[in-house]
């Protein structure tokens, strides 16, 4: 039978052991705060600085020499169009590569080498992609300093993210589901089309959007391929030109994007332009947050019906 003093001893041991729990809890909160507070400070500071500048005109005006008339029309339209190209290029390429690696590729040293390469690609500095694109898309393929060149450059940049996200989403599907499909007599493609892609679409979409959210803020590769910093006209809207050749006019139009507009304004001496830069930055962060929010919502929606 246990004595009262034994129980007391056990309680002391537990109390002493639990101190570490409390210690790590506090340490963890502090570590978390470094990240969260830094972001919040930047965001709030930008919001306070730029908020006064944000009105309808800010979105509908082209850049101007006079800060109070300058807007981000060409920048946000350019960003949306470049992102459209990026998405259209990166999603099919990345998903196809990911599906191939998971479902088709034989497991051998070559696949291992490719895997390591993809992981490394994700770590290549973005300006290197800019240089590659300058040589390849702008000059070699003759796409010029266009929306197409920029979109493809950013697509290359986020391709590893899309591939890795695709593979992870596919790996989350239990093997028994795959076996169930094959046992029904399905081919590999039928299994991919009817099961693998539908069940992994939430994870893939999340990866795509997170990749796009990274691409939307990229400046270096876009400057490298020669985006304009001051542009007072809009590219033609997609698929509105005179068919057939005119349909693709928008792809070859010169453009600017949000981060470049910001960069341009911050390099001006007048304080009013700094305010513009802060306002544009605020909008850019909102765009990113909106994309991440969409990713979370889509993941929730698409996963609701998927249980193993």
């Amino acid at each position: 039978m246990m004595q009262t003093q034994d129980i007391q001893a056990i309680r002391d041991i537990i109390r002493r052991a639990k101190r570490w729990d409390a210690f790590f809890g506090v340490l963890g909160i502090l570590a978390l705060m470094v990240g969260v507070l830094t972001f919040m400070t930047l965001f709030v500071d930008m919001a306070i600085q730029g908020m006064g500048r944000i009105d309808a005109n800010f979105f509908t005006n082209f850049p101007s020499r006079r800060a109070e008339h300058a807007g981000i029309l060409s920048a946000w339209v350019g960003t949306l169009l470049v992102m459209l190209v990026t998405g259209l290029a990166a999603v099919p390429l990345g998903v196809a590569a990911g599906v191939y690696l998971e479902e088709y590729a034989p497991k051998n040293w070559l696949t291992d080498v490719i895997e390591i390469n993809i992981t490394n690609l994700a770590g290549v500095p973005s300006i290197v992609y800019g240089l590659l694109a300058l040589g390849l898309f702008v000059y070699q393929f003759g796409f010029g300093q266009s929306i197409l060149s920029a979109g493809l450059t950013l697509a290359l940049l986020i391709l590893p993210v899309v591939i890795v996200a695709t593979r992870e989403a596919i790996r989350a599907i239990p093997q028994i589901i795959r076996e169930g499909s094959y046992a029904c007599g399905a081919t590999t493609w039928q299994t991919v089309k009817d099961h693998i892609l539908p069940y992994s679409s939430a994870g893939i979409l999340t990866g795509v959007i997170i990749g796009m959210a990274r691409a939307i803020g990229e400046t270096a590769p876009i400057i490298t391929i020669g985006a304009l910093t001051f542009i007072a006209f809009l590219p033609p809207l997609p698929f509105t030109g005179v068919p057939p050749a005119g349909l693709l006019d928008w792809l070859f139009a010169p453009f600017t994007v949000m981060p470049i507009q910001m960069f341009n304004w911050t390099s001006r001496p007048e304080a009013a332009f700094q305010t513009n830069a802060a306002a544009a930055g605020f909008i850019l962060v909102l765009m990113t947050l909106a994309m991440n929010g969409t990713a979370i919502w889509l993941r929730y929606r698409l996963r609701k019906n998927i249980t193993w």
């Binding site: 239990p174 028994i176 169930g180 499909s181 007599g185 009817d194």
Partner: peptide, 25 residues
């Protein structure tokens, strides 16, 4: 055809689960 140790219905409707064997044909 095969029935597995752990029930492994596809995350689809009851109808589509059964119909799948027919659809692949």
């Amino acid at each position: 055809s095969m029935v597995f140790q752990k029930p492994n219905p596809f995350p689809k409707s009851i109808f589509e689960n059964v119909a799948y064997s027919l659809r692949v044909r």
